[in-house]
Write a protein that binds this DNA or RNA. Structure first.
Lengths: 346, 346
DNA sequence: TTCCCTATAGCAAACGTTTCCAGTTAAGAG
DNA sequence: CTCTTAACTGGAAACGTTTGCTATAGGGAA
């Protein structure tokens, strides 16, 4: 058995090529290619013979060579802001399923909330010549954003981001309506001191949530109290430190909204430190029904959006872009789901 | 601006190639390649000039062409049994970080607990000519396993799987020792009716856990009661239905072990149905410290293994394989971490 | 001065496909 | 029977790189 093993005992990547299939079937390279790729100009007999030989030899086409020649990689890049957020796992998963159903693979890269990493990720995906990029950007005003979203490039789908002046599709969640519903609910229950912790204003979700929050107060002829807003970071550390401050405010907040996974982590820790129980001493609402909540914390009121639908929609939009259709924006609804944690506090 | 936009308004993938860089810098193709790839046979002046021109034109090398020519894709495939399990998100993430630090990208594919999917996934990754595959197999005795783990192929790292007769590396967790510790703890506390729900015997973790479980009983001169074992599935449905049965046994179990994410979900639901609280009416231990537990359920006793270390180790092993080193097995320790949930029940 | 060697640069083949174009055959029309 | 056409098949170029080989120039040793 010559050439079977290298000196390290590793099998050699001595894969069978289209050339060997052609030789064994005694036909031209081009005929093998056409027979296997479903090209119409092939006789039934030819197709049958080629397929038999290909199976026999265990031929598996080289996608790298196919990509180089055809200019298409059947690969989508997925740039995620912070893979720590379990929501993204869910989102990426449903997106990958939809892509796979259409014959695409996904390369997932994590920016770790860092703009430089994000820029490198875009560059990497371009070098890999992915057919499309789905991205959850760290911020909407990074200095690299023009370069990465304009210029010569593949179709792009943004997740929950609004960037002006670029030709990209987007999936946006309508956070405003769900938050409006939630805050209205609290106000009707008698809450006035409602605290809100979430990420900074340079991303769409914060703006949309804030819009719903503000409108609920306006609708009730009340004024938002700026010192109850902690708008600055999605990470748990930010939430923890600001929740501590908020809880010691006078008068203390009677309700608190956690905008995202990090906020939920930080706030719940701060509550524990202060011996406050959600739904008793303080009303609590999580913005986003995080996947782990259903396991143990099924009493937490949330503003729900269908994360898996967002992933699927992103896949659909990117496939549309690859087909040459114009970019478009798709909006996913959100709704308030009342559970025990939003009671109490008064 | 000719050629800037297609009729659909999409930017054309009119990327700059090495050829254009060569033309503009007035040097040969090969010189550009060598200058940019760090080849030694290049004068400082040449390198400088080429780099300037490349930057100026915004040249980004085509990784597809590089891969075809060099036979190396700098891509690792990650086949995951069930992406629903949040543990895999953590594992994949730490693995991806380590790979990226070494210049590799990761393609993640999900088998959804289905052997056919798994087989297709392996085939896809081979076609993509990945440099290595890290895999969490659905089962150790699938009919495709020989084909996928032997034959002409790239290096392979198995996650928590033991397959005889194949030349693959593996990262194994020593579940046995942690489970032994946990069960011994329960026995010492006076428990005799200890139930155990986990996946089927055709994967290593079950066997290792069972080994620890059995040995703890043997060490205490006690007999394992087979009807307290539900060894058959990692999914929540299996766990729920079997936990229901177990809880109605006579005598009822005083303690219960949940082997994995699905078991945890199913059992905790069954407990709730029966109005049983962990740490009070029944002692409870989760095998695997699942990532979401620390958010809200920080009172759950667990058998802990460092998931991120497993991911990193898998990356290290696959890189070793690519370097041509012999496959080897790496073992990760586990330990029992006592918290409130493992009290009570007696 | 001559010779050789080193450092550097260029040419061209190759990686494994797809696809354009041209050629062949057979069938159907006139 | 000849011509046209349709249906297929084969040859070869091309995709964008890397890399082995060859060529040249310049410097140092003899």
């Amino acid at each position: 058995m010559p050439n079977e093993k290298s000196e390290h005992g590793r099998s050699v990547n001595q894969r069978v090529t289209i050339r060997e299939v052609a030789a064994k079937a005694d036909v031209a390279l081009s005929s093998v290619s056409r027979a296997l790729s479903g090209h119409p100009d092939v006789s039934d007999e030819m197709r049958k013979r080629v397929k038999e030989v290909a199976d026999e030899l265990g031929y598996e086409p080289n996608l790298v060579a196919q990509s180089l020649r055809s200019g298409v990689t059947r690969t989508i890049g997925f740039v995620v802001r912070d893979i720590n957020n379990p929501m993204f796992a869910l989102l990426a998963r449903s997106c990958e399923q939809e892509l796979r159903r259409n014959g695409y693979s996904m390369i997932l890269v994590n920016s770790d909330r860092n703009i430089e990493n994000e820029n490198r990720n875009f560059s990497l995906l371009r070098r890999r010549r992915v057919d499309g990029i789905i991205a959850s950007l760290v911020s909407e005003d990074s200095p690299y954003i023009k370069k990465n979203l304009s210029g010569p490039r593949c179709p792009i789908v943004l997740l929950d981001r609004e960037v002006k002046g670029v030709n990209a599709s987007a999936v946006l969640a309508d956070h405003a309506s769900g938050v409006h519903e939630a805050v209205t609910h609290l106000i009707k229950a008698g809450h006035r001191e409602i605290a809100f912790v979430t990420g900074s204003n340079n991303v769409y979700p914060t703006r949309s949530r804030l819009e719903g929050f503000t409108k609920a107060f306006e609708d009730a002829n009340l004024k938002v109290q700026p010192d109850l807003l902690a708008i600055g970071g999605f990470d748990a550390d930010y939430a923890l430190s600001h929740a501590r401050i908020l809880l010691h405010r006078n008068p203390a907040p009677t309700a608190i909204l956690a905008g995202g996974h990090g906020a939920l982590m930080g706030i719940s820790r701060a509550l524990k430190e202060n011996n406050l129980t959600m739904g008793k001493e303080i009303a609590f609402i999580a913005l986003d029904q995080l996947p782990y909540l259903e396991v143990f914390s099924d009493n937490i009121s949330t503003v729900y959006r269908d994360t898996e639908a967002i992933g699927r929609e992103a896949a659909i939009l990117i496939l549309e872009g690859i087909e040459g259709e114009k970019p478009r924006v798709s909006v996913i609804e959100s709704e308030f789901i009342e559970r025990a944690s939003s009671q109490g506090g008064l």
